[in-house]
Amino acid sequence: MTAVDIRLDHLAIAQRLAADPRAWPVMPRFHAVDRWYHRLATEPDHEVWLLTWLPGQGTDLHDHGGSAGAFHVFSGSLIEDTVTLSPGGPPRVTARELGEGAGRRFGTRHIHRITNRSDRPAVSIHVYGPALTVMTRYRISATGLDVKTVERAGSQW
């Protein structure tokens, strides 16, 4: 695994890119069925993705395979549901709305889902360090948090 500079501020990178959309190599696109995404940059210690979200579009519960990161809402509004695990107790899901201009950092063990529950399209910028190689998708069951799938970069996204 590539070493990551823990001083790297993923949110600052996302905000810097959001400040100059004319420099993006592609303009955001929207697809009626699925979220659209495009990798904006790949660096030795991080990568940057541009994502679009029509109303109702979202992810399932997932982690980032040990990568830390951040995301910034360029336009629109997104809801992030974050999972907290407590020994012996059921998983707890906490919702947070992030509007245009808002962002948040997350660590290497972060499990969440993001959804556009508004009536407007949304655009966001996501930064991961190191670059994503694997993502685990989860479901909450009566017994706790269960692994649904493990997806690998290059073959499944």
Rank of each mutant, 00 (worst) to 15 (best):
I6N: 13
F74T: 11
R29F: 05
I13W: 05
R16K: 13
V33S: 08
I6E: 14
D81E: 15
V4Q: 08
G66K: 08
L50V: 11
R39N: 08
L51M: 15
W53V: 02
D20L: 02
W53C: 01
A19S: 15
L17M: 15
G58V: 00
V48S: 02
R16Q: 06
D20Y: 10
R39I: 06
R22N: 09
W49P: 11
P21V: 07
D60Y: 01
S86W: 01
P44R: 11
S77H: 01
I6K: 11
A12H: 02
F30Q: 04
R39D: 01
E43A: 07
G66D: 13
R39M: 01
R16V: 00
P55W: 02
T42W: 03
A18M: 04
L54G: 06
A70C: 05
I79W: 12
A18G: 15
R7W: 06
S86C: 00
V48A: 00
A70Q: 12
E47R: 02
R7G: 15
W24M: 10
L50R: 10
R16F: 02
D60M: 07
I13K: 06
T52Y: 08
W53R: 09
F74N: 04
H38Y: 15
F30C: 03
A14F: 12
L51P: 07
L78E: 08
T84V: 14
A32P: 06
D60I: 10
V73D: 02
Q57N: 11
H38T: 04
H31L: 08
T59Q: 12
W53K: 01
D60Q: 11
H10I: 00
D63W: 03
S86F: 04
D45Q: 14
A41W: 00
M27H: 12
T52W: 08
D81W: 10
D81I: 03
E80P: 03
T82Y: 10
D9R: 03
G65P: 12
A14Y: 05
D20R: 14
A19M: 03
Q57S: 12
L85M: 15
L54N: 08
T84D: 10
F74W: 13
E43Q: 14
V26R: 14
L78W: 05
S86N: 09
R35I: 00
D5V: 00
E47H: 07
G66W: 13
H62S: 10
L51V: 06
R7P: 00
L40S: 10
H46V: 00
L8C: 05
H64K: 09
E47D: 01
A12V: 06
E43L: 01
A32N: 08
H38S: 08
W36F: 04
I13Q: 03
G66N: 09
M27N: 10
W24H: 12
P44V: 11
F74I: 05
L50Q: 12
I13N: 06
D81R: 15
E80W: 07
R35H: 12
R16W: 03
T59N: 07
F74S: 03
G76S: 04
R35F: 07
P25C: 14
F71E: 05
A41G: 01
H64L: 06
